[in-house]
Structures are given as C-alpha cells and as structure tokens.
Lab assay of single mutants.
Amino acid sequence: KFNKELSVAGREIVTLPNLNDPQKKAFIFSLWDDPSQSANLLAEAKKLNDAQAPK
C-alpha cells in the first residue's frame, strides 16, 4: 500500500510547476522518511504550489 501511495505522491510532487527543485527534493525526502504521511505531504506540497503560483 505505501509503495503505491509513495510513487503516486512522488510523481505528483515532481510535476508541481510552482515548486523549485529544493522544495520538491525536501518533500520527496520526507516521503521516503515516512511513507505513511504521503497523503498529508502531497496536500502540503499542493498548498505550497498554489501559494507560489504567479499572480
């Protein structure tokens, strides 16, 4: 279960257009550290992506 959630969340995070590479890497490392938090980490990444969207 975690492997699928981890890969789905990881793929989504790397495609978020408004995150820079260090931010993406930080989220990916957090996913590896605790795969059970993949849904929460993906939600946080999406929030940050939205907040950094060009206005």
Rank of each mutant, 00 (worst) to 15 (best):
K1Q: 13
K1D: 11
K1G: 12
K1E: 14
K1N: 12
F2M: 13
F2R: 09
F2P: 11
F2S: 11
N3Y: 14
K4T: 12
K4L: 07
K4H: 12
K4A: 13
K4R: 08
E5M: 12
E5T: 08
E5R: 06
L6H: 04
L6F: 06
L6T: 08
L6G: 04
L6D: 05
S7M: 15
S7V: 15
S7L: 15
V8G: 08
A9R: 04
A9V: 15
A9H: 06
A9W: 06
G10A: 15
R11V: 08
R11T: 10
R11W: 15
R11I: 12
R11A: 12
E12G: 04
E12W: 11
I13Y: 00
I13K: 00
I13E: 02
I13Q: 01
I13L: 04
T15G: 12
T15I: 07
L16Q: 03
L16N: 00
L16A: 01
L16I: 01
P17Y: 00
P17V: 06
P17C: 10
N18D: 01
L19I: 04
N20P: 03
N20Y: 10
N20D: 09
D21V: 08
D21N: 07
P22S: 15
P22I: 15
P22G: 14
P22Y: 14
Q23V: 02
Q23D: 03
Q23L: 03
Q23S: 02
Q23Y: 02
K24H: 00
K24R: 06
K24I: 07
K25V: 11
K25A: 14
A26N: 11
A26Q: 12
A26K: 13
A26I: 09
F27M: 01
F27V: 00
F27D: 06
F27T: 00
I28K: 00
I28A: 01
I28F: 03
I28V: 04
I28P: 00
F29I: 14
F29V: 14
F29H: 14
F29C: 15
F29Q: 15
S30I: 10
S30H: 13
L31C: 09
W32V: 06
W32E: 09
W32T: 06
W32D: 06
W32A: 06
D33S: 10
D33A: 12
D33W: 09
D33G: 07
D33V: 07
D34W: 00
P35V: 04
P35K: 01
P35F: 04
S36I: 05
S36Q: 06
S36E: 08
Q37H: 05
S38V: 15
A39N: 08
A39D: 10
A39S: 10
A39C: 09
N40F: 10
N40W: 09
N40G: 09
L41Y: 03
L41G: 02
L42V: 12
L42H: 02
L42P: 01
A43E: 10
E44S: 06
E44D: 06
E44P: 00
A45Q: 00
A45M: 00
A45S: 03
K46D: 01
K46V: 07
K46T: 05
K46Y: 06
K47Y: 06
K47D: 06
K47Q: 09
K47C: 11
K47G: 04
K47F: 07
K47R: 13
K47I: 09
L48I: 06
L48Y: 02
L48M: 08
N49L: 02
N49G: 01
N49Q: 00
D50E: 13
D50V: 06
D50Y: 05
D50W: 05
D50S: 07
A51G: 04
A51I: 12
A51E: 11
A51W: 07
Q52D: 02
Q52E: 05
Q52I: 04
Q52L: 08
A53Q: 09
A53F: 05
A53K: 09
P54H: 08
P54F: 05
P54A: 07
K55Y: 05
K55D: 10
K55Q: 11
K55F: 05
